[in-house]
Amino acid sequence: MKITVIGCGRWGSLITWYLDSIGHQVTLYGRDNSKHMQRFLKERKNDLLAIPDSVSLTTDLSCVKEAEVIVISINSQGLQALMDELKQYELMDKILVLCMKGIEISTGRRLSQIANDNLDFSNNVAVWIGPGHVQEFYHGIPNCMVIDSNDCKTKELLVNEFSSELIRFYYGQDLIGNEIGAAAKNVIGIAAGMLDGLALSTLKGALMSRGTREVARLIKAMGGNELSAYGLCHLGDYEATVFSKYSHNRQFGEAFIKNEPFDALAEGYYTVKAMLNLGKNYGVDLPICKAVYDILYKEKNAKEVLNGLFSRTLKNEF
Protein backbone atom coordinates (compact mmCIF):
# COMPACT_ATOMS: atom_id res chain seq x y z
CA MET A 1 0.00 0.00 0.00
CA LYS A 2 1.32 3.46 -0.94
CA ILE A 3 1.09 5.76 2.07
CA THR A 4 2.01 9.39 2.64
CA VAL A 5 2.47 10.53 6.24
CA ILE A 6 1.98 14.26 6.81
CA GLY A 7 3.76 15.46 9.94
CA CYS A 8 7.31 14.64 10.96
CA GLY A 9 7.09 15.16 14.72
CA ARG A 10 7.55 12.35 17.19
CA TRP A 11 4.27 10.55 16.42
CA GLY A 12 4.37 11.12 12.68
CA SER A 13 7.91 9.77 12.52
CA LEU A 14 6.94 6.71 14.59
CA ILE A 15 3.98 6.01 12.31
CA THR A 16 6.29 6.29 9.30
CA TRP A 17 8.78 3.88 10.84
CA TYR A 18 6.03 1.47 11.85
CA LEU A 19 4.19 1.36 8.52
CA ASP A 20 7.48 0.87 6.70
CA SER A 21 8.42 -1.95 9.09
CA ILE A 22 5.26 -3.91 8.21
CA GLY A 23 5.87 -3.66 4.48
CA HIS A 24 4.14 -0.55 3.17
CA GLN A 25 5.63 1.94 0.71
CA VAL A 26 5.85 5.10 2.80
CA THR A 27 6.64 8.73 2.05
CA LEU A 28 7.14 11.17 4.93
CA TYR A 29 6.21 14.79 4.24
CA GLY A 30 7.37 17.78 6.27
CA ARG A 31 7.55 21.49 5.56
CA ASP A 32 10.90 22.72 4.26
CA ASN A 33 11.20 25.08 7.25
CA SER A 34 10.49 22.32 9.77
CA LYS A 35 13.44 21.67 12.06
CA HIS A 36 12.30 18.05 12.29
CA MET A 37 12.33 17.58 8.52
CA GLN A 38 15.63 19.40 8.12
CA ARG A 39 17.22 16.95 10.52
CA PHE A 40 15.62 13.94 8.83
CA LEU A 41 16.90 15.11 5.44
CA LYS A 42 20.38 15.52 6.87
CA GLU A 43 20.66 12.57 9.27
CA ARG A 44 17.48 10.44 8.76
CA LYS A 45 16.92 10.41 12.52
CA ASN A 46 15.65 12.41 15.47
CA ASP A 47 16.22 12.01 19.20
CA LEU A 48 13.85 9.03 19.36
CA LEU A 49 14.29 6.92 16.22
CA ALA A 50 15.91 6.46 12.82
CA ILE A 51 14.02 6.49 9.53
CA PRO A 52 15.07 3.63 7.20
CA ASP A 53 16.40 4.32 3.71
CA SER A 54 13.32 2.57 2.29
CA VAL A 55 11.22 5.59 3.32
CA SER A 56 11.03 8.54 0.92
CA LEU A 57 11.42 12.00 2.46
CA THR A 58 9.91 15.08 0.82
CA THR A 59 8.96 18.70 1.39
CA ASP A 60 6.63 18.69 -1.64
CA LEU A 61 2.99 18.28 -0.57
CA SER A 62 2.00 17.11 -4.05
CA CYS A 63 3.21 13.67 -2.92
CA VAL A 64 -0.34 13.10 -1.69
CA LYS A 65 -1.51 12.63 -5.28
CA GLU A 66 0.29 9.28 -5.55
CA ALA A 67 -0.82 7.92 -2.17
CA GLU A 68 -3.66 5.49 -1.55
CA VAL A 69 -3.71 6.43 2.12
CA ILE A 70 -2.81 9.79 3.66
CA VAL A 71 -1.95 9.64 7.35
CA ILE A 72 -2.03 12.98 9.15
CA SER A 73 -0.21 13.69 12.41
CA ILE A 74 -0.02 17.43 13.09
CA ASN A 75 -1.21 19.92 15.69
CA SER A 76 -4.97 19.38 15.77
CA GLN A 77 -5.68 23.13 15.66
CA GLY A 78 -3.86 23.29 12.32
CA LEU A 79 -5.96 20.67 10.54
CA GLN A 80 -8.28 23.13 8.77
CA ALA A 81 -5.29 25.04 7.40
CA LEU A 82 -3.82 21.79 6.08
CA MET A 83 -7.13 20.83 4.47
CA ASP A 84 -7.14 24.22 2.76
CA GLU A 85 -3.69 23.43 1.33
CA LEU A 86 -4.80 20.00 0.14
CA LYS A 87 -7.76 21.35 -1.84
CA GLN A 88 -5.50 22.28 -4.76
CA TYR A 89 -4.78 18.59 -5.35
CA GLU A 90 -8.49 17.69 -5.75
CA LEU A 91 -8.15 14.45 -3.84
CA MET A 92 -10.30 11.57 -5.09
CA ASP A 93 -10.69 8.02 -3.79
CA LYS A 94 -8.23 8.49 -0.95
CA ILE A 95 -8.35 7.34 2.66
CA LEU A 96 -7.34 9.97 5.20
CA VAL A 97 -6.27 8.64 8.60
CA LEU A 98 -6.18 11.18 11.42
CA CYS A 99 -3.73 10.38 14.19
CA MET A 100 -4.20 13.46 16.35
CA LYS A 101 -6.37 13.88 19.42
CA GLY A 102 -8.17 17.19 19.69
CA ILE A 103 -11.23 19.34 19.05
CA GLU A 104 -11.24 22.56 17.03
CA ILE A 105 -11.59 25.40 19.54
CA SER A 106 -13.32 27.90 17.28
CA THR A 107 -16.06 25.55 16.03
CA GLY A 108 -16.17 22.54 18.36
CA ARG A 109 -15.75 20.25 15.37
CA ARG A 110 -14.23 16.83 15.83
CA LEU A 111 -11.24 16.23 13.57
CA SER A 112 -13.08 13.79 11.32
CA GLN A 113 -15.74 16.45 10.78
CA ILE A 114 -13.10 18.96 9.69
CA ALA A 115 -11.66 16.49 7.19
CA ASN A 116 -15.04 15.46 5.80
CA ASP A 117 -16.14 19.09 5.47
CA ASN A 118 -13.24 19.67 3.07
CA LEU A 119 -13.22 16.49 0.98
CA ASP A 120 -15.00 15.14 -2.07
CA PHE A 121 -17.49 12.39 -1.19
CA SER A 122 -15.29 9.78 -2.92
CA ASN A 123 -12.76 9.99 -0.07
CA ASN A 124 -13.08 8.27 3.29
CA VAL A 125 -11.86 9.39 6.70
CA ALA A 126 -10.70 7.28 9.65
CA VAL A 127 -9.09 7.94 13.02
CA TRP A 128 -6.19 6.03 14.60
CA ILE A 129 -6.20 6.52 18.36
CA GLY A 130 -5.34 4.78 21.62
CA PRO A 131 -2.46 4.31 24.04
CA GLY A 132 1.22 4.05 23.28
CA HIS A 133 4.46 6.00 23.25
CA VAL A 134 7.11 6.33 20.57
CA GLN A 135 9.88 5.21 22.90
CA GLU A 136 8.04 1.99 23.77
CA PHE A 137 6.86 1.05 20.28
CA TYR A 138 10.29 1.71 18.79
CA HIS A 139 11.82 -0.69 21.32
CA GLY A 140 9.32 -3.43 20.55
CA ILE A 141 6.89 -3.01 23.45
CA PRO A 142 3.40 -3.84 22.09
CA ASN A 143 0.09 -2.13 22.73
CA CYS A 144 -3.53 -2.10 21.56
CA MET A 145 -5.08 0.76 19.59
CA VAL A 146 -8.31 1.61 17.77
CA ILE A 147 -9.22 2.47 14.19
CA ASP A 148 -12.66 3.95 13.67
CA SER A 149 -14.53 5.30 10.66
CA ASN A 150 -18.10 5.85 9.53
CA ASP A 151 -17.24 3.65 6.54
CA CYS A 152 -17.06 -0.01 7.56
CA LYS A 153 -15.03 -1.12 4.53
CA THR A 154 -12.41 1.55 5.23
CA LYS A 155 -12.20 0.50 8.86
CA GLU A 156 -11.81 -3.18 7.95
CA LEU A 157 -9.15 -2.44 5.32
CA LEU A 158 -7.05 -0.35 7.69
CA VAL A 159 -7.26 -2.78 10.59
CA ASN A 160 -6.16 -5.61 8.29
CA GLU A 161 -3.35 -3.60 6.66
CA PHE A 162 -2.01 -1.90 9.78
CA SER A 163 -2.17 -4.65 12.42
CA SER A 164 0.92 -6.50 13.58
CA GLU A 165 2.38 -8.14 16.65
CA LEU A 166 3.51 -4.69 17.79
CA ILE A 167 0.14 -2.95 17.46
CA ARG A 168 -3.12 -4.85 17.70
CA PHE A 169 -5.97 -2.76 16.33
CA TYR A 170 -9.56 -2.99 17.46
CA TYR A 171 -12.53 -1.92 15.35
CA GLY A 172 -13.96 1.30 16.75
CA GLN A 173 -17.75 1.38 17.00
CA ASP A 174 -18.46 4.98 17.97
CA LEU A 175 -16.67 7.76 16.10
CA ILE A 176 -18.15 10.50 18.29
CA GLY A 177 -17.21 8.78 21.54
CA ASN A 178 -13.78 7.73 20.38
CA GLU A 179 -12.81 11.18 19.15
CA ILE A 180 -14.15 13.03 22.19
CA GLY A 181 -12.63 10.50 24.58
CA ALA A 182 -9.24 10.62 22.87
CA ALA A 183 -9.17 14.41 22.97
CA ALA A 184 -10.36 14.66 26.58
CA LYS A 185 -7.77 12.26 27.95
CA ASN A 186 -5.10 14.89 27.26
CA VAL A 187 -6.87 17.29 29.62
CA ILE A 188 -6.96 14.58 32.28
CA GLY A 189 -3.25 14.06 31.65
CA ILE A 190 -2.54 17.71 32.45
CA ALA A 191 -4.59 17.42 35.63
CA ALA A 192 -2.56 14.35 36.60
CA GLY A 193 0.68 16.24 36.07
CA MET A 194 -0.62 19.04 38.27
CA LEU A 195 -1.31 16.52 41.03
CA ASP A 196 2.25 15.20 40.63
CA GLY A 197 3.59 18.73 40.88
CA LEU A 198 1.67 19.28 44.12
CA ALA A 199 2.77 15.91 45.58
CA LEU A 200 -0.87 14.74 45.43
CA SER A 201 -0.30 11.77 43.12
CA THR A 202 -2.41 9.56 45.38
CA LEU A 203 -5.47 11.39 44.02
CA LYS A 204 -4.89 10.06 40.51
CA GLY A 205 -7.23 7.15 41.18
CA ALA A 206 -10.06 9.55 41.95
CA LEU A 207 -9.07 11.66 38.95
CA MET A 208 -9.27 8.66 36.63
CA SER A 209 -12.62 7.51 37.99
CA ARG A 210 -14.32 10.89 37.97
CA GLY A 211 -12.66 11.98 34.75
CA THR A 212 -14.07 8.98 32.90
CA ARG A 213 -17.58 9.66 34.21
CA GLU A 214 -17.28 13.32 33.22
CA VAL A 215 -16.28 12.47 29.67
CA ALA A 216 -18.87 9.70 29.41
CA ARG A 217 -21.65 12.19 30.22
CA LEU A 218 -20.47 14.52 27.46
CA ILE A 219 -20.19 11.70 24.91
CA LYS A 220 -23.75 10.60 25.68
CA ALA A 221 -25.08 14.16 25.40
CA MET A 222 -23.41 14.50 21.99
CA GLY A 223 -25.11 11.36 20.68
CA GLY A 224 -22.29 8.88 21.18
CA ASN A 225 -22.07 5.75 23.32
CA GLU A 226 -21.00 6.69 26.84
CA LEU A 227 -19.27 3.29 27.17
CA SER A 228 -16.66 4.54 24.69
CA ALA A 229 -15.13 6.54 27.55
CA TYR A 230 -14.27 3.22 29.20
CA GLY A 231 -12.52 1.88 26.10
CA LEU A 232 -9.06 2.30 24.60
CA CYS A 233 -9.71 5.84 23.40
CA HIS A 234 -9.99 7.24 26.94
CA LEU A 235 -9.74 5.08 30.06
CA GLY A 236 -7.55 2.62 28.19
CA ASP A 237 -5.12 5.45 27.43
CA TYR A 238 -4.80 6.64 31.03
CA GLU A 239 -1.72 4.56 31.86
CA ALA A 240 0.12 6.20 28.99
CA THR A 241 -1.23 9.67 29.78
CA VAL A 242 -1.77 9.93 33.53
CA PHE A 243 1.26 7.97 34.75
CA SER A 244 3.89 7.68 32.03
CA LYS A 245 7.11 9.64 32.18
CA TYR A 246 6.79 10.02 28.40
CA SER A 247 3.40 11.76 28.45
CA HIS A 248 3.74 15.34 27.22
CA ASN A 249 0.45 16.37 28.79
CA ARG A 250 1.37 14.96 32.19
CA GLN A 251 4.84 16.50 31.93
CA PHE A 252 3.34 19.85 31.00
CA GLY A 253 0.94 19.82 33.96
CA GLU A 254 3.75 19.06 36.39
CA ALA A 255 6.07 21.66 34.85
CA PHE A 256 3.32 24.28 34.99
CA ILE A 257 2.82 23.74 38.72
CA LYS A 258 6.56 23.86 39.36
CA ASN A 259 6.94 26.93 37.14
CA GLU A 260 9.44 25.07 34.98
CA PRO A 261 9.91 25.60 31.21
CA PHE A 262 8.20 23.14 28.86
CA ASP A 263 8.34 23.62 25.09
CA ALA A 264 6.85 20.38 23.73
CA LEU A 265 3.30 20.17 22.34
CA ALA A 266 0.66 19.38 24.98
CA GLU A 267 -2.63 19.13 23.06
CA GLY A 268 -4.67 19.22 26.26
CA TYR A 269 -3.74 22.88 26.72
CA TYR A 270 -5.86 23.75 23.67
CA THR A 271 -8.43 20.96 24.01
CA VAL A 272 -9.61 22.15 27.43
CA LYS A 273 -11.02 25.33 25.81
CA ALA A 274 -12.97 23.27 23.29
CA MET A 275 -14.18 20.87 26.00
CA LEU A 276 -15.68 23.69 28.06
CA ASN A 277 -17.41 25.06 24.97
CA LEU A 278 -18.90 21.65 24.25
CA GLY A 279 -19.99 21.26 27.87
CA LYS A 280 -21.79 24.57 27.68
CA ASN A 281 -23.41 23.77 24.32
CA TYR A 282 -24.65 20.35 25.46
CA GLY A 283 -25.48 21.26 29.05
CA VAL A 284 -22.91 18.97 30.66
CA ASP A 285 -20.97 19.84 33.82
CA LEU A 286 -17.22 19.25 33.32
CA PRO A 287 -15.63 20.07 36.69
CA ILE A 288 -12.19 18.61 35.98
CA CYS A 289 -11.92 20.42 32.66
CA LYS A 290 -13.05 23.65 34.33
CA ALA A 291 -10.45 23.22 37.08
CA VAL A 292 -7.66 22.75 34.53
CA TYR A 293 -8.90 25.74 32.53
CA ASP A 294 -9.07 27.97 35.61
CA ILE A 295 -5.50 27.09 36.55
CA LEU A 296 -4.05 27.47 33.05
CA TYR A 297 -5.95 30.46 31.74
CA LYS A 298 -7.32 32.33 34.76
CA GLU A 299 -4.16 31.89 36.85
CA LYS A 300 -6.12 30.60 39.81
CA ASN A 301 -4.22 28.95 42.66
CA ALA A 302 -3.71 25.33 41.61
CA LYS A 303 -3.75 23.85 45.11
CA GLU A 304 -6.95 25.64 46.03
CA VAL A 305 -8.69 24.73 42.79
CA LEU A 306 -7.71 21.05 42.93
CA ASN A 307 -8.53 20.75 46.62
CA GLY A 308 -11.91 22.29 45.87
CA LEU A 309 -12.41 19.83 43.02
CA PHE A 310 -11.94 16.81 45.26
CA SER A 311 -13.96 18.21 48.16
CA ARG A 312 -17.12 19.08 46.20
CA THR A 313 -20.53 18.63 47.80
CA LEU A 314 -20.99 15.02 48.86
CA LYS A 315 -23.04 13.00 46.40
CA ASN A 316 -23.61 9.46 45.20
CA GLU A 317 -20.77 8.07 43.09
CA PHE A 318 -23.03 7.01 40.18
Rank of each mutant, 00 (worst) to 15 (best):
F262D: 10
Y293E: 05
C152D: 12
K87N: 06
S54A: 11
P261S: 03
I72W: 09
Y18P: 13
Y89A: 02
C63Q: 10
V125T: 10
K298I: 07
N33M: 06
L198G: 13
L48K: 15
C233G: 05
H36E: 12
E68A: 09
S106P: 07
R110C: 13
S34K: 04
E304D: 14
Q135C: 09
K35F: 11
K258Y: 08
M222K: 12
V26K: 06
R217A: 13
L278G: 03
T59V: 15
R168N: 11
I190H: 03
S209D: 07
S228H: 05
F137P: 02
E317S: 13
Q25V: 12
G108C: 09
V284R: 12
I114G: 10
M92K: 15
G205V: 12
G9S: 03
Q173K: 15
G23F: 06
P142F: 06
S34G: 01
N150I: 02
A126I: 11
N150R: 07
G108L: 08
H133R: 10
G9P: 00
Q88L: 09
E239K: 09
L203S: 01
G236L: 00
V242A: 07
D20K: 01
A115T: 07
V146M: 06
D285N: 14
V55I: 01
L41G: 03
I190K: 02
M145E: 04
I176D: 09
L314I: 14
G9K: 00
S247A: 14
Q38F: 13
N307Y: 11
L309K: 01
L306D: 01
G108N: 14
D174T: 10
Y246V: 07
P52A: 13
D93S: 06
N281F: 04
L296Y: 08
N249M: 06
E267A: 00
P131F: 02
L227Y: 09
S311G: 00
I103Q: 11
M92P: 00
L276H: 02
S164F: 09
N259I: 04
E260G: 04
